[in-house]
Computed example of a mutant assay.
Amino acid sequence: MQLHDVWFVLIAVLWIGYFFLEGFDFGIGILTKLLARDRAERRVLINTIGPVWDGNEVWLLTAGGATFAAFPDWYATLFSGFYIPLLVILVCLIVRGVAFEYRHKRSEERWQRNWEEAIFWTSLLPAFLWGVAFANIVHGVHIDQAKNYTGSFWDLLNPYAILGGLTTLVLFTFHGAVFSSLKTVGDIRLRARALALKLGLVTAVLALAFLIWTQVHQGDGWSLAALVVAVLALVGALGVLRAGREGWGFALSGLTIVAAVAMLFLALFPNVMPSTLNPQWSLTVSNAASSPYTLKLMTVVAAVFTPIVLLYQAWTYWVFRKRIGVQHIPAEH
């Protein structure tokens, strides 16, 4: 295996980690409207991710930076061709971070309600648009011989991509519901578990349709194995949730995301962005990669700093592992 293959795998791992962690973040933001009945319950949901949401976004920054350094042509074509949806995602992430930090700065009803509204929409839109973006990356887009995207914004909103967006939206919301049932106590925990069971059924229908479509279009034996793992993990998550085992449910809902995203990268390899105009114009791990010296230097840096980041983030989750409920929310002044 050459270094550009190694870095394709590493970038896939970074995106898998991002969707696993940020997936329940987005889900919690969406559930502030779907699950919470009052301001206290919304505060409980937001507090479940309060200590970790910004750390989860480090995975996105690292994935983008690694793509820029390891596959500059992939980065250039992706960010120029997908400029509008990626800009919308970026704006949402900025506003979402501001909303988390500023919502509690003032006690006025209108102030907090507006920031909570922002949290909902800036969680829902990226959850949908990430699915649209990755569906287009895997399915292929209009790339010419000069490695430039020649399509329009509306070309990205094709039926396959929209199905991909709906799949990630529901899957992340399901993941968030499982996480909220794991991190809360009392009535909200029971309602989160019940909602997760309902969302899991919708997720199963959409995810199965999307992954089968992907497999039929460009899958192989490895992607088929990942599809099977994703389906079994989702079924297992629903089974253990029904038995009240939220810890196992969260692990299996996370495995569903891991296997589903892994399947997309397995179906994509050795391409990084297929061309629908001419397969010979596709961006691949070899023609889009940086020089061997750059990849070698990146490998050394990653080997040193990646374990430090992982240990720190694991420590953060351990420190803030306890459940919370409305009884832990102080009265507003």
Rank of each mutant, 00 (worst) to 15 (best):
D5C: 05
F8Q: 05
V9C: 00
I11Y: 00
A12Q: 01
I16N: 07
L21T: 14
I30R: 13
T32A: 05
T32I: 08
D38H: 11
L45E: 06
T48M: 05
P51H: 14
W53P: 03
D54Q: 14
L60T: 02
A70R: 07
D73C: 01
W74Y: 14
L78P: 00
G81L: 04
I89G: 08
I94T: 04
G97L: 15
G97S: 15
R103Y: 00
R106F: 08
R110Q: 08
R110I: 04
W111D: 03
Q112R: 15
R113Q: 04
N114M: 12
W115A: 06
E116A: 13
E117L: 06
S123F: 01
S123Y: 02
L124E: 08
P126T: 13
L129H: 02
A133W: 02
A135Y: 03
A146Y: 12
K147D: 11
D155V: 02
L157C: 03
A161N: 01
G165N: 10
T173G: 02
F179K: 08
A194I: 02
L199S: 10
G200I: 03
L201E: 06
L201Y: 10
L206Q: 11
Q218F: 05
G221S: 09
G221Y: 03
A226G: 03
A226T: 10
A226L: 11
A237P: 00
G249T: 06
L252K: 05
G254Y: 01
T256S: 05
L264Y: 02
L264K: 00
L268P: 00
L268R: 00
P270M: 06
M273R: 00
L277Y: 07
W281Q: 11
S282L: 09
L283R: 04
V285L: 02
A289N: 02
S291G: 10
P292G: 09
T294I: 12
T294A: 11
A302T: 15
T306L: 13
T306E: 03
L311V: 08
W318A: 14
H328D: 12
I329F: 01
A331S: 04
